[in-house]
């Protein structure tokens, strides 16, 4: 329990750091978000109208420390400010359903790539020097060296644009209304296949290699030998004994990979015009919609922190030693 509380405390500190960073970054940097508004009016707006708008957005002067505490109070109420590009919609509303899509894409690609990579890693370690071990690590290392978004572009070009097997964008067809029915869910997967697939391809190699290398070590350890000597079936030895132990470093890496995959899926979303955070984020940056941009950053960060906390729980379940030291 203590272990979990400690971790929780750490995540709270991290969240606080992210909040503070979020507040001070824009104020330390040059530039003025309100001028960005002109972008959409191409000069049709006079300086007087701009001044009036500036007040509308609350971009007024005040001591920094007061602004900081007001900001914190707002964040705790779930108020992330007002989007400039989507005015008068509050940032929280604009972000609203976008997070679901990002979590869907990043989450399922992470889980899928972890599962596939780990399984293949086990296989590679078990049949050292077999064809899996010879070819897959190298292939996936090469694939992993490509930027995800580039894989996404190529996949979109070949499978979407040229062959027409997959849709070219969006999370579901324009003519389908969302609902829990087979058509919608099927459509959902059809649209998610390429985004998830490319991220999985790009990230699987890491899991494969790390699992393979730890597995090789674990397979040589005494307790595995003992299990083998007892005449347990290979499947049991591999999965129940070796893999469970070899999994630990990977699970630690899992938490770390969360942030990474999320970053990558942001880019992938841009390529597939997937309606998640990534797209919103990039557009906010391009529109210089700073409130929205920071809101997205904060939400992504908090999501990663929360996911890390879940990984800690998983770790606790996998590794009894943490339980022991904790009690």
């Amino acid at each position: 329990m203590l272990y979990l509380l400690k971790r929780l405390g750490f995540y709270l500190i991290a969240a606080f750091a992210a909040l503070t960073l979020n507040f001070f970054l824009p104020r330390l940097m040059p530039g003025d978000p309100a001028t960005a508004l002109f972008a959409r009016f191409r000069g049709r707006l006079g300086p007087e109208a701009l001044e009036a708008l500036r007040e509308t957005f609350g971009l007024t002067e005040g001591p920094l420390i007061t602004q900081y505490f007001t900001y914190l109070a707002h964040v705790f109420r779930g108020d992330l400010g007002i989007s400039i590009a989507y005015f008068p919609a509050p940032v929280s509303e604009v972000i609203g359903n976008g997070l679901v899509w990002t979590v869907f894409i990043a989450g399922s690609s992470l889980v899928l790539s972890f599962a596939l990579g780990t399984l293949l890693g086990i296989a590679a370690a078990w049949w050292r020097r077999g064809w899996i071990d010879t070819w897959l690590p190298a292939t996936f290392t090469l694939l992993g060296a490509f930027p995800y978004f580039w894989l996404a572009m190529v996949a979109l070009y070949l499978l979407g644009f040229t062959l027409g097997w997959f849709p070219l964008g969006h999370a579901y067809g324009d003519d389908i209304s969302p609902g829990w029915n087979a058509t919608f869910i099927g459509d959902l997967f059809r649209h998610a296949a390429l985004p998830i697939g490319t991220v999985v391809l790009g990230t699987m190699g890491g899991w494969l290699l790390s699992m393979r290398n730890t597995m090789i070590g674990v397979l040589g350890s005494d307790f595995v030998n003992l299990a083998r000597a007892k005449g347990l079936s290979p499947a049991r030895v591999v999965l129940r004994y070796a893999a469970r132990n070899a999994l630990l470093p990977s699970v630690t890496g899992f938490g770390m990979a969360l942030g990474f995959v999320l970053g990558g899926s942001l880019l992938t979303e841009v390529v597939f015009s997937y309606p998640g955070q990534g797209y919103l984020f990039v557009q906010a940056v391009r529109n210089q919609d700073y409130p929205l941009m920071q809101g997205v950053f904060l939400v992504i960060t908090l999501a990663v922190l929360a996911a890390n906390w879940c990984v800690d729980l998983l770790y606790l379940w996998l590794d009894p030693r943490t339980r022991d030291t904790a009690s």
Partner: peptide, 12 residues
């Protein structure tokens, strides 16, 4: 974002 305000200049 659902916005059909024809007067505002604060957003498109």
């Amino acid at each position: 974002v659902r916005n059909f305000n024809p007067l505002t200049t604060a957003t498109a």
